[in-house]
Every structure is written in structure tokens, then in C-alpha cells.
Design a protein around this nucleic acid. Structure first.
Lengths: 265, 265
DNA sequence: GGGTCATGGG
DNA sequence: CCCATGACCC
């Protein structure tokens, strides 16, 4: 079973890229982030015509997540609330950043973690609060009737220095501050989650996001911030995890590349 | 000598269309309207590489005119002021709508006549005031040392009912009101100018502009508002005048088609 | 509907 | 740099 995660930076701007990519990468499940469109306007038709079921949760302009799957997902859950209740989630479900569903007995959790803007900003505390809530969400999930799950998406955190092209000054750089790294570790620890990519690849130089502004892609000055995390049994079954840089080189690309994990079934 | 006029609706958005069109239509002179760019940012290079000299007068966002020519133009005049003086032109040269220059002894006057918005608007009176000034401008030109000239561009006026796909309600429709039609007639009369297109084609159904909004092009619901007007001697020398609908059918086209006149030399 | 700009976000 | 939006213009 192949599962991919791709921050597409607008589904409407990237529709053809996604179709082209699916044409040569017939994954079973594709998790998308930053679809940036309300559900009524989501272009389901072309993806359904390509053989995928679309499970979506979007909003205007910002955020928005979707899962495409060859077979329909079971028990789709949108936001944190289905597992936590709206008293706990508060305002956190206003931004559409969480969608999950069960595919072949495995719950796929697709996330768009807040970027956090800058370490001294309001958005940074929102990111930390969001991650704390995610931790509880995954804890509940591990106690549920689908204790084997995969958590993927755009985490907006480079877990280690080898996940950044140049770790200089990283302590104060959003996506690499010690506090958010620790917050991510706490999230993962709650369910014994492990990074599928690092099962196969130890070295630095592998990234999933390159800033448009600094034209980082041509020089491979990037960040590995898109991940697949697996519960122990699935981790053991993981056969490959790789980043497909190709679509990042296409015309008018997303700033992220798709990350694919293969799990033995 | 082939002279073309084309409202390109942004030179930067239409650069490739123009180069492609020039590739199979090697006109001597190409008059452009709605370039929508200040002179410093005008993309001269690709057009110079294609063998044209660029004579430009633009502004940010709106309006803007240019003349491309195989040989450099002589005596380029920008705006009304060079012939009328700034006391007469007042504010009318703030909008970049007039450029002219001499090619092979013929003065080419390239115009982007104000659209006028609606007959009850401030912009409509501006249009009429502008046309009155144009009349004086052409009068002065007819008394100058280049009394043979061509006046082309986007006139934003359909001179007759046969120049509109559906003349119903035209009396109150901008670009067809009797007052602006008469204003155009007055402009042309001052220098005995005649419509080159109507030398060769009497019937209706020939248009140079089709509204994006109503998808008028596919149904040929258009307006003939882009013209070439000639002084008597040139009119006698005119051998062909035609509208090239082809580029209007390309991807992301201008809403106008180029109009080409051939003058025997 | 398709240009422009400005603003906000990353 | 490349998304999004809203305002203006044709």
C-alpha cells in the first residue's frame, strides 16, 4: 500500500500537477494540505475521473486538507472534535487542518500543522497549543479500535538539524526552534510513532520543502518538514519512504514535494 | 506596407501571443493599445530580438500605447501636447493613449480612445472631451508637413449598426450611442479620413472585440471597434484590410483581435 | 472573465 | 516567489 503526502499550495492552482503526478504514481492514498478552497468549490470531478474518492475539509484562502483514496475511506473524521469533543478543541477546528479516515484497516491521519510565523508571535503559541491538542488526539486514537495508524502531512517542523540545509541560527528560526521540536517529540512519544523516512535514510540533504523566495530548490537549500509517522507494527511493515522531487521542478510548482511511504500489506 | 493595430490587454500577459503572431504576420508596423505598463518595465528585449523597434508610452495598470516598427519611426510624438500645447491638452495626456511617428513618410497615429463606461458617467464626458481634442490634433496634423497619415487603434466606438452583432438597445449602450458616433464622425471629417476596412467589406458580422464575460467569441457576438482610418491618398492606395480572428481563439487571449491594413508602396 | 494593484500569508 | 482576496476597469 502506497500512501503519499503533498502540500499542494492550492488545489485549484495545482490541479493539473496532481493529476499528472497521479498518472505515473498510482498511490492508494494521497493526503493533501493547503487546498485553500471551501468544500463546495473543491474540484472533485477530475480526481474522481482519475479513479479517486475525495474526502475533503477546506476553508477559504487558507489551510484545507483532503484525502484521495482508490477505495472509499471508512469512518472519516474531520477536525479534532470527533475524538476530543468541542469543549477541548475550542477554536482549533476553525482552521481546517485535520482529516482522517480508515483505509484497509489503517487509520490515515492527514495534518497541516500551523506554520507559527515567528517564535515571538501569537501564531507560534497557537502552533504549540495545537500540537498539545494533537497529542491528546493521538493518545485517544491509540486507545481506539484502530490502534494502528499513520500520521502524515506538513508538520512545519524540521525534527533534526540534518533535516535543514543550513542549521545555522536554527534555534530562533520557525520550524526548527527547540520548543516546537520538543512539542513534536511529545506528540510522537504518546503513540510510539516513528518517522518512516528515517527508517531508510540516515543522511542529510533530503528535503520536502524549498522556499520560493530564496529560489532554494535549484540549490537544494530546503527543509524536510513533510513526514509520515507510523505506529510500531506499521513501522515494521514499511518498505520504502521517499521524496519525489520531480514535481517541484515543474512549471509553477507547489513549494513542497510529495512524500511517499510503502507499507507491506 | 502592412500596418496592424491590436489592443493586447497587457503587454506582459500577452508577450508570447504577440511574438507568435508576429512570427507568421511580419507586418511593418504594429500598433498596440492597453500595454498597462510603465516604460521602464516594458519588455522591449523580446520584440527587439524579433526585429522590431519599440516606441512606447505607458503607465501603471491602465491604458498605455506602443508602436513596433521594422525600421525606426521618425519624429515620435507622445500625447496630444506636441501638436496642441499643454494649455490645450490640460489633463488629457495624463492617461497614455496617444503615440505617433513617421514610417516611410507616413505618420502613423496610434490611439486608445477612452471607453466611457456608461453614457451617464463622468468617464463618458471625458471620452467626448478627449475626442474633441483629438479632432483638433488631427486638424493640426493635416496642416503639418506630413499631411498623409493613418490613424488606428481601439476607438471604443462601433461606427454603425453593422459593426455590432446585435444593435438592439444600442442607443444607450456605450460604444454605440449616437453622440459618440457623431463625435467620431466629426473627428474623421476634419481630415477626410476614411475607414479602410469598409473599402473592402460591406457586410456585417466582422468584429474586432468580443466580451470575455458573455463568451461572445464562440458565438461571434462582437463589436468592430478597432479601426484604421486613412487620408484620401492612402485610402486610394489601400489594398486590403482584415481582422485576424485567430489569436482571439488562443489560450488566455486578449479580448481584441489584430486588424491589418495593407497600403501599396 | 480577465487584466491591473494592494494587502496578507508562507 | 507564489498563493489567496477584494477593488477597479473594460
Amino acid at each position: 500500500m502506497d500512501i503519499a503526502s503533498w502540500n499542494v499550495n492550492s488545489i485549484r492552482s495545482r490541479q493539473q500537477h496532481i493529476l499528472d503526478w497521479l498518472g505515473t504514481n498510482t498511490v492508494d492514498v494521497l493526503c493533501l494540505q493547503e487546498t485553500k478552497v471551501v468544500d463546495e468549490d473543491f474540484p472533485r470531478q477530475p480526481f474522481e475521473a482519475a479513479g479517486y474518492h475525495c474526502h475533503i475539509s477546506g476553508q477559504k484562502s487558507y489551510n484545507g486538507v483532503a484525502i484521495f483514496s482508490r477505495e472509499p475511506l471508512q469512518d472519516v473524521k474531520i477536525g479534532f472534535a470527533p475524538l476530543l469533543g468541542s469543549e477541548v478543541t475550542g477554536d482549533l477546528d476553525e482552521q481546517k487542518r485535520v482529516i482522517s479516515g480508515v483505509y484497509m484497516g489503517v487509520r490515515i491521519v492527514n495534518l497541516y500543522v500551523p506554520n507559527g510565523s515567528a517564535p515571538d508571535s501569537e501564531k507560534y503559541s497557537y502552533k504549540l497549543r495545537w500540537l498539545k491538542t494533537l497529542k491528546t488526539y493521538l493518545h485517544n486514537l491509540s486507545k481506539s479500535d484502530t490502534p494502528e495508524f499513520l500520521v502524515c502531512g506538513d508538520f512545519n517542523i524540521a525534527p533534526e538539524d540534518r533535516d535543514i540545509h543550513d542549521p545555522k541560527g536554527r534555534e530562533n528560526h520557525i520550524m526548527a526552534t527547540p520548543v516546537e521540536r520538543q512539542a513534536l517529540k511529545d506528540v510522537l512519544a504518546i503513540a510510539d510513532l516513528q518517522d518512516a523516512f528515517r527508517k531508510f535514510t540516515e543522511e542529510t540533504g533530503h528535503y520536502s520543502w524549498w522556499d520560493y523566495r530564496t529560489r532554494g530548490f535549484s540549490r537544494n537549500r530546503g527543509w524536510r518538514i513533510d513526514h509520515h509517522y507510523l505506529t510500531p507494527k506499521l513501522y515494521a511493515q514499511a518498505q520504502r519512504c521517499w521524496i519525489d522531487q520531480e514535481p517541484r521542478g515543474w512549471e509553477k510548482p507547489s513549494d513542497h514535494a510529495p512524500v511517499v511511504v510503502t507499507i507491506k500489506d
